[in-house]
Design a protein around this nucleic acid. Sequence first.
DNA 1: TGTAATTCCTATTAAATCGATAGGATTAAT
DNA 2: ATTAATCCTATCGATTTAATAGGAATTACA
Lengths: 137, 137
Amino acid sequence: MLSKKTKYGLKALTYIARCKGEDPVQVSAIAKSEQIPQKFLESILLTLRKAGVLGSKKGKHGGYYLRKEPSEILMTEVMRVLEGPIAMVPCVSLNYYEKCDDCPDEHACSVHRLMIEVRDSTLKVFRNTTLADLSSK
Amino acid sequence: MLSKKTKYGLKALTYIARCKGEDPVQVSAIAKSEQIPQKFLESILLTLRKAGVLGSKKGKHGGYYLRKEPSEILMTEVMRVLEGPIAMVPCVSLNYYEKCDDCPDEHACSVHRLMIEVRDSTLKVFRNTTLADLSSK
DNA sequence: TGTAATTCCTATTAAATCGATAGGATTAAT
DNA sequence: ATTAATCCTATCGATTTAATAGGAATTACA
């Protein structure tokens, strides 16, 4: 299941990408437009900023803005920041690899091999999709 | 994340598929070989039986057996029984569709469109993989 | 017929995660 | 100064997950 955090984060990024202006976009505006609890959204945007996807400006007339062009923001990056590993099991994760307690031999594990296929097919989608794709119409 | 339930279930099915004999396979044997807590495994196999994937025989010399040939048991079926919907959000689920509270217009939702792609690519893997593939080698 | 071995069923629990909220500290524009 | 915004930490309640407990029902077979 996709977490609300990720869902809200994606919607917020889409919203910001559509605000083509130079001015930073405020949390309150996004929360209202996308029906997201404002305080929750604050923490999500903070995460995205700390990960380098968003930049921010504090104080009056402050807000968030994209650090790159929408067409350069890949879903692989966004999904990893918001949702964590793309793989369904740590033992097939490229960025968060961890050995299973149970499996004596990974390569002999039937689940392992299946999950590699799933990971690869999901990665293909995320590598092939940018924020520009999400925000276009 | 893949739940332990699903992981254990897949391993158990693989184990049963590899026991080519006619006799039913006992929970205790699977639990021991695959390092799965026996009581937990019991409940998982029960779920698979109720879903029609496994058959069972009670009493002494009882156990579980496959209801179909491994090559006829698709991952779509197994994953739906064990893990639930394949889609990451209910609004793109084929078998468990549900409208989002927030989205006024599904087709305009950027998350929706992305998740359809993910669902389709994952489905392709699961539709193309059977228990025979898992248990071979 | 009785005993052992097995699945079947329900309930409970401990821990983790998720979604959301609270309350204020900090910063910047006017 | 005042106002409006991000930033930060802590907490809470609900849900889900993984596992355990305890026994009922069924079957083989001595």
